[in-house]
Design a protein around this nucleic acid. Structure first.
Length: 217
DNA sequence: TATGCGATATTCT
DNA sequence: GAATATCGCATAG
């Protein structure tokens, strides 16, 4: 685990090409564990290791694409590597990666990252949305999809962007530190339809993984 | 540490 | 009108 009191800066991270992304939703969800998510902001670069994902494959009734293509879920139907950013529960943005061929709707939800760069900026932005001035645990910084989007300044303005484009403000990178050991698998969090399917993937033992402990042994 | 609940707005029925 | 890929706060143990 990285020492969060000494944030690394100016990491060299190679952009992933679209051809490297598995053209299959479940394979992509597993593949993304240990990869890097990078957000370029005007001031600082924010980045983190992806430690938890969920697959919403074709035909999955819990997937936002299941009811058919619409203006709200259109990004899920674009080429893989496209960002799908969706607002939910009244106040949270969820960040996904479209995962199939154009015209087919499916995606991978990024649920948690382990902070690498830009930690103070993450803290600043997360604190702004807090009602009360409390100190919160470092682990809570980007644990859970809503918090992750808040910390990385991800909102609807990034919906539909190509994460594999040369100078995109949000992109996927090669691992700074590869995922260790066997990747954990469990049911997904917070859904009621197709709730039994084991399509959640996480790095075992990583404290930045979200959800109840029983799901992440 | 674990569980329960209200807030909040967009989308779909 | 109902449901929702959540979070933060409160309360109990």
């Amino acid at each position: 685990m990285i020492d969060l009191t000494k944030p690394k800066a100016n990491l060299r991270i190679r952009r992933l090409r679209r051809a490297e992304l598995p053209a299959n939703t479940i394979q992509l969800a597993r593949y993304l564990i240990g990869k890097t998510l990078v957000r370029e902001t005007p001031q600082v670069r924010i980045s983190g290791r992806i430690v938890e994902t969920e697959a919403y494959p074709v035909g999955d009734t819990a997937g936002h694409a299941f009811t058919g293509r619409s203006a709200a879920n259109n990004s899920l139907f674009l080429k893989r590597g496209t960002a799908y950013v969706r607002f939910t529960y009244g106040s949270h943005w969820l960040f996904n990666v479209a995962s199939e061929t154009p015209g087919v709707g499916a995606g991978v939800l990024i649920r948690a990252i382990e902070p690498l760069e830009g930690i103070s900026l993450m803290q600043r932005h997360r604190k702004l949305t807090r009602r009360r001035q409390n100190v919160f645990r470092m682990n809570d910084l980007v644990r859970g999809p809503g918090r992750l989007s808040s910390a990385l300044l991800i909102d609807g303005s990034l919906d539909g962007i190509d994460l594999c484009a040369p100078r995109s403000p949000l992109w996927l990178g090669a691992p700074v530190r590869p995922a260790k050991g066997v990747i954990g698998v469990s049911v997904r969090i917070g859904i009621t339809k197709d709730a039994h399917r084991r399509l959640r993937f996480y790095e075992r033992g990583n404290p930045h993984v979200s959800g109840p402990v029983r799901l992440s042994p």
